[in-house]
Amino acid sequence: MQVIKVRKLFQRTLFGVFALFGFIGISTSFLLIDTVNSYLTEEYETNSLGIAQTIADSSVDILLNRDLSTLQSLIDQFIEIQGISYVYIRDETGEFLAHTFVPGIPEEILNADPTDISTVERQLPGMGEFVEVSRPILAGVAGAVHVGMDSGMIALQVQRAIGRQVYLISVVFVLGVVAAIWLVNLAAKPIGDVLTYAVALARGEEQEAESMEGVLGRKDEAGQLARLFAHFSRGHVSASSSDGAG
């Protein structure tokens, strides 16, 4: 006897599970990229502004003492912080008093408006992409501190955060699919048994049908359906016998 499997029901359910998890994964990733990107960029900007403010506050006395080597020493310490790529200080006339550029100050920064202290995005040839924040020194009358953050570093952090989330979602997806297959099989097997039993009865294969009688003992809907088939089958057999006798 060939056991009949409930393929269509299984395929549809599995497709549904794929579609559902796929939708959850993709929509979560998009939301995550946006959230992490915004959050990390904001955090880097806030930190950089804090660093710029610290340097600006510390620079006042140093600048008034005209001690540029100490000023340089000060900004050199901040350049060691991860994500901070460059620091420079311009005085109120726009002259560069200290900076961390090697081998020289990039043309774009040389030509930048010295009075502009808004946050700007810079693409510096040979160096990369940066977000630059600025804070005034002594309310701007002594110049400004500019701190450049590596946009690539922020992007890398975003990628790492997203990578971890996608990994988690993938694991949940695989586990979900495996669980779905198992549950569908669990649900489909009795139905397949009933179908096999019903086909055997319909074909008059009584021996095969008797071997499937276990399904008649089930207390669930599959058992009820099997018993119903058996009932109809016996009625059909009985009716056939009467017809033959008359």
Partner: peptide
Amino acid sequence: QADAYGRSGWA
């Protein structure tokens, strides 16, 4: 030199 020494001489 891009440090305090270089800046001192530059100044």
